[in-house]
């Protein structure tokens, strides 16, 4: 317990198997601890299991063996409703493909997690507006996703991930669908979030993206190959 006292995420001996007409092992006995306020990148080729690890930590999936604890909550034994609550309030997701609701405006997209968390309408809007202006989209609140550029969409998604003040922000290839310059600006937003004390876990296969984190966890064939402290993180 002492080791995990200051940890936002504890992944302890986790394996994940899929039965796809034959057993496929996506993760094999992985252990990892994310301390509060840390910024970690997971790197690995496609199929290495890095997205599976992210899904387990985010409560989208449950491990076949081992334990995943997020913000003190053991997800391995959680029921469907509890997992939903974890996804809604304990973690915030940022996806490669943005995953905004197409028929909701920017402000409604940001407020969506608050709907499921039971906030009333006025408070939801107030919170969403303030988050949108934090990410520099205060003048785009009533735009639909189709009316926004890729970079703007990703910033809406980041604002949405922050709406419930989660203990952990998860990003899956957040720069994968935008140009280099926009990607760099999104990574700046992550740096700001880190500086503000948020705990971040980012999955990428690009070296220069991973290097923005404090440390890089290399995953291959479902196992943690090495953990590397980056110069970025040490200064």
């Amino acid at each position: 317990m002492s080791e995990t006292a200051n940890a936002t995420v504890v992944v302890d001996g986790v394996s994940k198997h899929y039965d796809l007409g034959g057993r496929v092992t996506a993760l094999d006995d992985v252990s990892l601890t994310l301390s509060k306020g840390s910024y970690t990148a997971i790197m690995g080729p496609s199929g290495s299991g890095k997205s599976t690890l992210l899904n387990l930590v985010g409560g989208l999936d449950t491990p076949s063996a081992g334990r995943v604890v997020v913000d003190g909550r053991d997800l391995s034994s959680a029921g469907e409703d509890e997992l939903a609550a974890v996804r809604g309030t304990d973690v915030g997701f940022v996806f490669q493909t943005f995953n905004l609701m197409p028929r909701l405006t920017a402000v409604e997209n940001v407020a969506l997690p608050l709907v499921f968390d039971g906030w009333d309408r006025d408070r939801r809007r107030e919170r969403a507006l303030s988050l949108l202006s934090d990410v520099g989209l205060g003048d785009r609140i009533d735009h639909l996703p189709t009316e926004l550029s890729g970079g703007q969409r990703q910033r809406v998604a980041i604002a949405r991930a922050l709406s419930t003040e989660p203990a952990l922000i998860l990003a899956d290839e957040p720069t994968g669908n935008v140009d280099t310059e926009t990607g760099a600006r999104i990574l700046d937003v992550f740096d700001d979030l880190h500086a503000a004390g948020n705990t971040l876990l980012l999955v990428t296969h690009e070296r220069h993206v991973a290097e923005r984190a404090e440390r890089v966890v290399h995953v291959e064939d479902g196992r943690v190959r090495s953990i590397e402290e980056t110069p970025e993180g040490t200064d």
């Binding site: 985010g58 409703d81 609701m101």
Partner: peptide, 16 residues
């Protein structure tokens, strides 16, 4: 389906 996935990812329970 994709929208359902998004809603679930941001905290929607099955009953929502």
């Amino acid at each position: 389906t994709r929208e359902i996935g998004i809603m679930k990812a941001v905290g929607a329970r099955n009953r929502d």
